[in-house]
């Protein structure tokens, strides 16, 4: 699970080690990545929104 999260984070950042990438594509389940990806997208929105609301006071 942690591996999937790390890979999704790397994808968000846009850089991934070739070896890890190949490993994910060959052995990972696409469903898991899609689900975690969607969740992380929501988390991303919430984090930025929280920051904006906090700064706006």
């Amino acid at each position: 699970m942690w591996g999937v999260i790390k890979s999704v984070l790397a994808a968000f950042f846009g850089v991934q080690k070739e070896r890890q990438r190949r490993h994910d594509f060959e052995h990972g389940k696409p469903g898991a990545f899609i689900l975690v990806g969607l969740l992380m997208a929501v988390v991303f929105v919430v984090v930025i929104a929280a920051l904006a609301i906090y700064v706006a006071g």
Partner: peptide, 11 residues
Amino acid sequence: HENTTVEVIWT
């Protein structure tokens, strides 16, 4: 055609 370090830096 790949260099993780460079890519991390320029991101």
